[in-house]
Design a protein around this nucleic acid. Sequence first.
DNA 1: TATTGCTATCGAGTGCGCTCTATACTTTAT
DNA 2: ATAAAGTATAGAGCGCACTCGATAGCAATA
Lengths: 129, 129
Amino acid sequence: MENYYSSRQVSERTGLSIHTLRYYEQVGLIDGITRDSNGYRQYSESDIFWFQVLNYFRSIGMTIREMQEYASFNNSEVPTITARREFMESYRRKVVDQMAELERSLDRIDEKITFFKNLEDSNKLLQDK
Amino acid sequence: MENYYSSRQVSERTGLSIHTLRYYEQVGLIDGITRDSNGYRQYSESDIFWFQVLNYFRSIGMTIREMQEYASFNNSEVPTITARREFMESYRRKVVDQMAELERSLDRIDEKITFFKNLEDSNKLLQDK
DNA sequence: TATTGCTATCGAGTGCGCTCTATACTTTAT
DNA sequence: ATAAAGTATAGAGCGCACTCGATAGCAATA
């Protein structure tokens, strides 16, 4: 009595394109998808849930490679909650690093803007003479 | 009495690879580079200065397209200081937007981490019983 | 029954920003 | 004189994350 869903339905429920669903399968982000007698994919509820997780990861800027690492916890025998938390904490640090990098860029942009403002001011002074 | 520099020299002084120098020329980020009798490029001091500006832009995450827009000020007749300042202010806003996006990601990551921590805590409680 | 529409696979194409390869000519060092 | 090193062009390749196209089988509707 399990419900199955077509590619189209999963695409609509996850916001991922049908092509992306298959692409994620191809790169090993999801497996074990059942097929009907015609070879059509039958996605389960838990497949949809997993795609939603992947979509969440995508939305926070995670790379495919990083998702693959996370996905490997699914096939693991050992307890994975802690591993998952640590993975997220590690990813959090990457995001913090990215923000710091942007912060540095921002400072350098501000210097540039100040530089141009000073130029504009000197030009104005020249014209006032 | 102008000094000229070879690709290699410019590469060393700017930190850009020789291939990147030519690539930047190819996509129109720099032009008017003189050649010697054998067709070898002779970069001027101002070419080097411009490459350093481009490298700065690259370091703050600017795309080639954005650099091209900025480069167009070089060939402009009208006063460009103000245009350049406004361009940088506009780019500044993009960077601020990117930071806000990362900030949102960070919040969502923290939720996830909290979720896992709660799971770990309940597991611990179960084991203590 | 015919047409439309959904699904399948495989492989190519896209956009970004390089990066590298192949081939050929020139310059410099031994 | 020869070999090594530098420069030139044109075009291919790369890594990422899709995205699209071609072709074909299967399904639902008029």
